[in-house]
């Protein structure tokens, strides 16, 4: 007889959550993702290349037209160095959203992958953490590649910039969690238009390409509610080593979003699949 691990309380989550929700096996779901992507590794190449194209375009294109802008501390900085950390945040967002909406929707609606998982001791929170965790790992891989290129291009000027990678993971985590929660509401593939409708303006207006001061007053308030704004601000400050206390607020906003997303996803999965 094989030894099937029961629901022995290991770790904090296992002790405070009902066993029906979480079995502590999110890692098995990440294993599944690794296997499934090990044969489709080419998608990784595209995920790494896409933000690099942007970076190169800005370096040889916009960089000529717009030479210098005011950086986070008010000091002048090259436009490319201004945009690069924002692009890193945006690529973390894009990768995470793509993975956690398209991928999840397909598995949820058509392949019934999660039904199969939930017939085992695995619970909805395992599925949420496993899938979101995978999106974060993928986002992290892209971030490392991007960060390397930023270095090579001389866009990194502060040792604080090393923190860009963990911040990219946090951004990916927040967007993957929210994205997966949203994916459970999608009914048909055409509704992915709504995902685009949320992601594209966020990409364009979250101070990615121009500073907040460019926007009229009331719009500034709206911008500051966008999750990507917080990722961009964090990264831009870190990339030049200008730190300020509001960064704690940015981190808290993203962390809260991530936590809410995980919670909402597991609730939705339980509500839809275990009924």
């Amino acid at each position: 007889m094989p030894v099937t691990e029961g629901t022995r309380p290991r770790g904090l989550l296992l002790r405070i959550l009902p066993p029906g929700l979480y079995a502590g096996r999110a890692s098995a779901i990440i294993e599944r993702s690794m296997l499934s992507y090990s044969r489709g590794w080419l998608v990784f190449v595209s995920g790494v290349l896409e933000p690099l194209f942007y970076l190169v375009a800005f370096q040889i294109g916009f960089g000529r037209l717009v030479t210098e802008v005011a950086g986070p501390g008010g000091q002048p900085m090259p436009y490319v160095a201004f945009v690069a950390p924002a692009l890193l945040a945006a690529s973390a967002m894009n990768g995470a959203v793509f993975d956690s909406t398209f991928g999840v929707f397909f598995k949820f609606k058509y392949a019934k992958t999660y039904d199969a998982m939930l017939a085992t001791p695995i619970g909805p929170l395992d599925v949420a953490i496993g899938e979101i965790g995978w999106a974060v790992l993928r986002g992290g891989l892209y971030a490392v590649a991007f960060f390397g290129v930023m270095n090579v291009m001389g866009l990194v000027t502060s040792p604080w910039a090393l923190l860009l990678v963990p911040v990219a993971l946090l951004v990916a985590f927040a967007f993957a969690a929210i994205g997966m929660a949203c994916a459970t509401f999608i009914r048909s593939p055409t509704q992915f238009e709504f995902v685009q409708l949320a992601v594209v303006p966020m990409f364009l207006f979250s101070t990615t390409f121009f500073p907040l001061s460019v926007f009229p007053g009331p719009l500034q308030v709206v911008i500051q509610f966008l999750p990507l704004y917080h990722g961009v601000e964090l990264m831009r400050g870190l990339s030049v080593g200008v730190l300020d206390p509001t960064m704690a607020g940015h981190v808290a906003y993203l962390a809260a979003l991530a936590a809410f997303g995980v919670f909402a996803t597991s609730r939705r999965l339980a509500g839809l699949l275990l009924r």
Partner: peptide, 13 residues
């Protein structure tokens, strides 16, 4: 093969 192996992992084997 992976279908069987991965499913076993869900059981903690």
């Amino acid at each position: 093969r992976q279908n069987l192996q991965v499913y076993g992992r869900y059981f903690g084997l």
